[in-house]
Computed example of a mutant assay.
Amino acid sequence: MYWDGGWVWMAFMPLLWIVLIGLAVWAVVRLTRHPAGRGDGPDRGWTHRETPEEILDRRFASGEIDADAYNEARKHLAAHRPGPR
């Protein structure tokens, strides 16, 4: 008895090509996607997402806001900070 498994390969090959093309597309997207805003830290190459306090500090340091506005905003942020969960 001779069994010809050619039909199995005919069914398997399109699936193999779909998987290979899918992997290639995934790799290209993964390598070219801009990672900004992920906030997963510098060890993964992604940018750090600023906290409201850091934004306020940066704006005060650059002269966008004065000391009174800075202090008032700091108090507001401290009063509305969510507690520990």
Score class of each variant (00 low, 15 high):
residue 83 G to A: 09
residue 42 P to C: 13
residue 24 A to G: 08
residue 49 R to W: 03
residue 53 E to M: 14
residue 32 T to V: 10
residue 68 D to G: 14
residue 1 M to C: 09
residue 40 D to P: 01
residue 50 E to G: 04
residue 45 G to S: 01
residue 37 G to C: 06
residue 14 P to I: 04
residue 2 Y to G: 10
residue 27 A to I: 10
residue 35 P to R: 12
residue 5 G to E: 07
residue 62 S to V: 04
residue 74 R to G: 00
residue 45 G to Y: 01
residue 80 H to A: 11
residue 84 P to H: 15
residue 56 L to N: 04
residue 7 W to G: 03
residue 2 Y to C: 07
residue 84 P to Q: 15
residue 8 V to T: 07
residue 42 P to S: 15
residue 48 H to W: 10
residue 16 L to Q: 07
residue 68 D to V: 13
residue 11 A to K: 06
residue 13 M to C: 07
residue 15 L to V: 11
residue 84 P to Y: 13
residue 4 D to R: 02
residue 11 A to L: 11
residue 67 A to N: 03
residue 16 L to I: 05
residue 7 W to K: 05
residue 15 L to D: 09
residue 68 D to M: 13
residue 58 R to C: 03
residue 3 W to D: 05
residue 39 G to I: 02
residue 44 R to K: 12
residue 64 E to G: 03
residue 16 L to P: 03
residue 34 H to A: 14
residue 37 G to S: 09
residue 25 V to E: 04
residue 46 W to S: 09
residue 41 G to H: 11
residue 64 E to L: 05
residue 11 A to M: 08
residue 17 W to C: 04
residue 62 S to Q: 06
residue 30 R to V: 14
residue 22 G to T: 03
residue 17 W to A: 09
residue 63 G to R: 02
residue 29 V to S: 15
residue 58 R to A: 09
residue 69 A to W: 11
residue 51 T to E: 00
residue 35 P to K: 12
residue 80 H to G: 07
residue 38 R to N: 09
residue 78 A to L: 08
residue 27 A to D: 14
residue 79 A to T: 04
residue 12 F to A: 10
residue 31 L to G: 14
residue 18 I to D: 01
residue 17 W to D: 04
residue 62 S to R: 02
residue 2 Y to S: 12
residue 47 T to M: 02
residue 45 G to M: 01
residue 59 R to I: 11
residue 4 D to N: 03
residue 5 G to Q: 10
residue 82 P to N: 13
residue 83 G to M: 07
residue 46 W to K: 12
residue 45 G to H: 00
residue 63 G to V: 04
residue 32 T to Y: 05
residue 13 M to T: 12
residue 65 I to A: 07
